[in-house]
Amino acid sequence: MDHLTALENKSIFIIREAYFRFRNIAMLWSVGKDSTTLLWLVRKAFFGVVPFPVIHIDTTYKFPEMYRFRDEYAKKWGLNLIVGRNEGQVEAGMGPGKGTKLDCCNELKTNALKQIIEKNGFKALLLGIRRDEHGIRAKERVFSPRDENFKWDYENQPAELWDQYKSTAAEDNHFRVHPILHMTELDIWKYMKKENIPLTELYVSKNGKRYRSIGCAPCCSPIDSTASNVDEIIAELESTHTSERAGRAQDKEDAYTMQKLRSLGYM
């Protein structure tokens, strides 16, 4: 079995396990490349039909290309799409210009999702996160319990040896299930190429720039790139040393810079 097929088999196994054990589940679809790949795998796992809702958390700040893509494929693939929006905060004008970026993410993403889980009583959510995205994600489990406050207790997690996944938890917990945790950014692109998975045009180069990671428009910056198709993206990734989220990692450096400038009397 080749590498990509092995990865696919493992993902499909996890997806079927999750559906079998929890039944009342949903998946999160950000419309980015990872969760679109996850959605593709879910469709494969259930022979073209997605047997549970697909949640899109809409901060109202996503790129227009993302909304177009979402609506097109939700229809084409017959998805039971739930659009989650923290209406109260959206109406109150929450956004990256109001409060800190952390407040904005908290209200428009985290709390929007909490509201949906509460309303629908989902026992588990499928997410398209990957271990190689960020240091802390390397510690993630495939079946990862969360408490009612969404807290992830990474120092107290079940072992997952020999593909044995723990799926019982306290009453008010839910599980995050990560079917593509074992894939790398490059695996995703190679798999997308192999399967010809559709993706939003934000990922390919336009005027010398492309997005390597997408989220809300105000908080994402494109990278310099001339990669105009999946083959060129793969070639670029094979030769790059900067991290995928570098375009989204400005906040930490900016905070340091601000503190430094302030200490010298600027700003």
């Binding site: 930490k252 450096e253 340091y256 810079t257 430094k260 400038l261």
Partner: peptide, 10 residues
């Protein structure tokens, strides 16, 4: 060889 000065966050 180059090492950055102010402001160098990393």
């Amino acid at each position: 060889v180059l090492t950055s000065g102010f402001v160098c966050p990393d």
